[in-house]
Design a protein around this nucleic acid. Structure first.
Lengths: 224, 224
DNA sequence: CGGAATCCTCTTCGATACTG
DNA sequence: CAGTATCGAAGAGGATTCCG
C-alpha cells in the first residue's frame, strides 16, 4: 500500500519546496543538522516535543528526498549520525530567511519555552550581515552554556558548526538568552559586551579591541 | 473557548517563525498576496485544493498575527481585499528562498499539477540575481497566459506586482510553463527568446537588443 | 459575491510503551 | 541507543448549507 505523499499538486517552485520541507518539524530537523551531523538521540534532544516515531518518519522522508544521509563518524567516535547532503545544505538560505524573520517576533522567553545553545548559534549565524559574506573574513568561536560552536566567515560563505575552531580569531561566551537578545535587536552587541553579559577572549590584549570591532561589523541584529 | 494555538514552544527564531507561518497553506497564502491584494475568491482560485473554511481560518490567523490586513480598494473597484502588512511583506525573503530552492526540484509538470500565471511570476521574481538588487534598474512587464505582471528592479529592491507597468522598459510574453522552465534552469532565457517560446516587445527596434541584454543580466535561473 | 458554520471522513500528530 | 507499535486527539479535506 504505497502511501502517496500529500502534495499541493501545483506546478510552482514555492509549492514544490513546501511539498518536501513544509511538514511540521521538517525544517526544524534541518535546523538541527545545519550545525553539523547528529545522532538520533541528539536530534531528539534538540527537538523537544517531537515523538520518536515522528522523528523517524521525518528522517526517512528526508533521506528519500536526498536532503539527509546516514553516515558513520570516523574513529574513535564511530557513531551513526544523520547529516545533510549538498541538497540539504542548500536549504541554508531558507533557514536564514526564516530566522531573520522570526527575530522580529521573538520577544522575551515565555514560561513554556525551551532553550538550547544550538538555537542561539543558528540565530547568530543568521545575524551575519549579508553584505559581510564577501568581506570581513574571520573565525569566531561561541561558547554558549557549555556547548561550543564556531562561525566562519569568508570566501563568500558563512557557516556555523558545532565544535571548537582550530584557531579562532575571537571567542565569545554567554548564555543562550543573551545571544538571542542580541540577534533580535533587544540588546546591542556593544552593550552586551560592556555589561559583561557576553565575555570576549582571544588575540593579544592590544589586538582584542580591534578584533572585537571587526566582529561587531560582521554581526548585527538579524532583524531588518 | 480560546483554542490555544499549537506551538513548538522553543525560544528559537526559526521555530517562532514556523509557529506563525509553518502551518499547511499559510505560506502559499502569502505567496498569493506577494503580487498584490486579492479578493477571497481570487485567493481560492490561486490555491486549488484549499477549502473555504480553511482559507478563512488561515486568513483570520494571519490577520491576528499582523501579517495580513483587510482593505477596501479605492473606487471604482471598491472590492474588499486582503493585503500584506509591512510585517507580511517582510516575508519576501522567505518566499524567495523557498522558491529558489524549489526551482532545483521542479522538473517537468506532472499530470496532476495545476499551473497559474501568478506562480510563474513569483518564480521569475526569485530568479532575479541577488547581486542585481543594487544595479541594473528597470521595469519589465510580463504577460503570462493573458495575465499581466510587472517586475521592478531598483533602489536595492525587487518587486513583482499584478497589473501593467505604466512605462515598462520591456515586455516579455509567454506561457507559464516556459517561464518556469527558465527559472528552473531547464531552458536558458536566450534560447527561450530565440525559439520564440518567449516573445519580447518594447523599446525601439535599435534599442531592443540592448534592453534584452540588460534584462538577461538581471534574471537567470533561480537554481544555484 | 464573500464569506461563516456544520458534518463527516481521513490523515497526521503526540505521547507512551515496547523491542532489537 | 535507535528505533517500532499502538492509540487517542487534533487537524485537514470536501461537500453542503446558511447568511448578509
Amino acid at each position: 500500500m504505497g502511501k502517496k505523499k500529500r502534495s499541493y499538486d501545483q506546478y510552482c517552485t514555492v509549492a514544490r519546496a513546501l511539498d518536501v520541507v513544509g511538514e511540521r518539524w521538517t525544517l526544524l530537523v534541518v535546523r538541527e543538522l545545519s550545525t553539523g551531523p547528529k545522532r538520533f538521540k541528539d536530534l531528539l534532544g534538540g527537538l523537544p516535543g517531537i515523538g520518536t516515531n515522528l522523528l523517524t518518519a521525518r528522517l526517512k522522508a528526508l533521506e528519500q528526498e536526498g536532503i539527509v544521509r546516514r553516515a558513520t563518524l570516523p574513529p574513535p567516535a564511530g557513531s551513526n549520525v544523520y547529516e545533510l547532503t549538498e541538497l540539504g545544505w542548500s536549504l541554508e538560505p531558507v533557514i536564514v530567511a526564516l530566522s531573520r524573520w522570526g527575530s522580529k517576533l521573538l520577544g522575551a522567553p515565555r514560561e513554556e519555552d525551551d532553550l538550547r545553545p544550538g538555537w542561539a548559534a543558528v540565530a547568530m549565524r543568521s545575524a551575519v550581515e549579508s553584505g559581510a559574506e564577501g568581506g570581513s573574513p574571520g573565525v569566531y568561536e561561541y561558547r554558549i552554556d557549555g556547548e561550543v560552536f564556531h562561525l566562519r566567515v569568508g570566501d563568500g560563505k558563512v557557516e556555523t558548526r558545532q565544535g571548537a575552531a582550530p584557531d579562532p580569531d575571537l571567542v565569545v561566551m554567554g548564555e543562550p538568552g543573551t545571544f538571542l537578545a542580541v540577534t533580535s535587536g533587544r540588546l546591542s552587541p556593544k552593550e552586551a559586551v560592556e555589561s559583561g553579559a557576553l565575555r570576549v577572549e582571544g588575540g593579544t590584549e592590544e589586538s582584542r579591541d580591534a578584533l572585537l570591532a571587526r566582529y561587531l561589523t560582521v554581526i548585527g541584529p538579524a532583524v531588518g
